[in-house]
Amino acid sequence: MSVVHDVWRATKELLEATALPWPSEDREERLQMVDRLLRERQELLWKLRPPYSEEEQRLGREIIAWNQEIEKRLHQVRDEIRGDLRVAGAKRQANARYVHPYEQPLSFDGMFYDKKR
């Protein structure tokens, strides 16, 4: 079996591993699996050498199409994680204000300075 077939197989596994949705409970183990598959595929990509047969070129075009879908899915997961971190930070900040209400800097809204002498 050629290296192109191995890359195709690894890309197909990666496409299946990135299938949406990603529940937050399973996110950590799925990220580890995706990371492992990306590393495995990178090792295979370094071994690719031309010339390629017609079948290998067809597989290459399929790999490129899958890569675009994988990238789109991973961007969605990244955005979900960013949103979760933003919500967690807001909750932590609100909790800190509730527990220690007088440790926050005072607000000076509504102050007026008279410039007349």
Rank of each mutant, 00 (worst) to 15 (best):
K91V: 05
M1S: 12
S2H: 06
H100Y: 15
E55Y: 10
D84A: 09
R92Y: 11
Q93I: 11
E40N: 11
N67K: 07
S2F: 04
L20Q: 12
E54P: 12
E13T: 03
R39I: 08
M33L: 09
P50G: 03
R36D: 03
L37D: 01
E80G: 02
V77D: 00
D6Q: 14
W66Q: 15
D79L: 09
E103Y: 11
E54D: 15
L44I: 11
E13V: 01
T11V: 07
Y113G: 06
P21L: 02
L44A: 10
I63L: 07
E55H: 12
E43I: 10
A88L: 08
R58D: 15
P101Y: 07
Q93R: 14
Y98L: 15
E13W: 03
W22T: 00
E80F: 02
L20G: 08
W66E: 13
L31A: 00
D114K: 03
E28M: 02
M111N: 08
L31Y: 00
E71Y: 10
K72F: 04
R92F: 12
Q76L: 08
P105Y: 10
F108T: 11
Y52W: 14
K12G: 11
I63C: 06
S24G: 03
H5I: 12
W46Y: 13
D79K: 09
K115Y: 06
S107H: 06
D109K: 14
R27S: 00
V3M: 11
Q42I: 05
E13A: 05
V77I: 02
T18F: 00
V7M: 03
V77T: 00
L20Y: 06
G110D: 12
E56I: 06
S24H: 02
A94L: 08
A10Y: 02
H75G: 04
P21V: 02
G89V: 07
A88D: 04
V99C: 04
E29Q: 05
Q57K: 11
Y113W: 09
M33H: 06
E25P: 00
R82E: 11
H5K: 12
W46I: 08
D114C: 04
V3C: 10
L20H: 06
H100G: 05
E43V: 11
W22R: 00
F112N: 11
H100A: 10
W46P: 05
E25C: 01
H75A: 07
I64W: 12
Y98T: 15
L14Y: 01
Q42C: 07
I64D: 14
E13I: 02
P105L: 11
E55D: 15
E28F: 01
L38R: 11
H5V: 13
